[in-house]
């Protein structure tokens, strides 16, 4: 098994409400990260589905994620759990993550934190590669989020 955790934040001049609107617009956010294919909203702010597709040399990832919102406080916090399986190999992927919007003297601090784990053969072979990829995906997401909320 490979796992990791992350904690990132940035500041924006936008209000918490404006941030909330952008950062819960899943169709918009799906386009920020290359690995995410389709996102389906099953029940807004409650349940979603997402497909992941990636490639590293000859190795392909094709996973379907089930996303459940576990905590929600509009427009301040949201936490979710995403879990799914790679279609080819059956390796399981789980993400527990959350976002907090903290007003701070006319600005808003946008804070993300969470843990992820990958179980199965993919993890056995490429633990550090997976963590490296995860970091790259987080970097991609965050820099886009910061840009969109400028």
């Amino acid at each position: 098994m490979t796992s990791g955790s992350f904690e990132r934040q940035f500041e924006t001049l936008r209000t918490a409400e404006e941030c909330w609107a952008v950062l819960t617009d899943v169709d918009r956010m799906a386009g920020w990260v290359g690995i995410v294919g389709q996102v389906i909203t099953r029940t807004p702010l409650v349940a979603y589905g997402a497909s992941l597709e990636d490639r590293m040399g000859p190795f392909r990832l094709r996973a379907d994620l089930d996303i459940r919102v576990t905590e929600r406080e509009v427009p301040a916090r949201i936490r979710f759990r995403a879990s799914g399986q790679d279609r080819q190999v059956g390796s399981r992927l789980t993400v527990d993550a959350g976002m907090q919007l903290v007003p701070n003297a006319g600005r808003t601090i946008v804070r993300f934190d969470g843990t992820y784990s990958v179980e199965g053969r993919v993890a056995t072979l490429g633990g550090p590669m997976i963590r490296h990829k995860a970091d790259a995906i987080l970097d991609q997401f965050l820099s886009r989020a910061e840009e969109e909320l400028r």
Partner: peptide, 20 residues
Amino acid sequence: AVPYVGGTELLAAMKLGLTA
């Protein structure tokens, strides 16, 4: 077609289902 000679990596990956 995917080329191979010894297959030490390709066949190993195929056995694990990581490439098909």
